[in-house]
Amino acid sequence: MCLGIPGQVVETVDAENYLAKVDVSGVRRTISVRLLADTGLKDGDWVLVHVGFAMARIDEEEAATTLAQLQKMGSEYDNELEQFSSTSL
């Protein structure tokens, strides 16, 4: 449940409401970036996504390592990704 999955910010959807679109392994959805509001987050940056929120900034290398680790988890990662893409804000 505490899984954080790495995503890359691809588009600011609604700056006023802190919504941005992130790409997680090719799956895109809108998440809240409210928790990183004062960190100057911009398109192309990598974040850890948890329950629809960007919870921490990470660099590209960390994103790749974490992703590789998650993919080894198999079904749980698939579930997380499925949930990630199954709903939209």
Binding site: S32, V51, F53, F84, S86, L89
Partner: peptide
């Protein structure tokens, strides 16, 4: 739900219902 924001969205789409989000973590 994947996110508490999804629960809020369900509430907005169902104005005649009351939506409770069971928050853990």
């Amino acid at each position: 739900v994947y996110s508490p924001l999804d629960a809020l969205k369900i509430a907005m789409e169902n104005p005649t219902k009351h939506v409770v989000f069971f928050a853990v973590g």
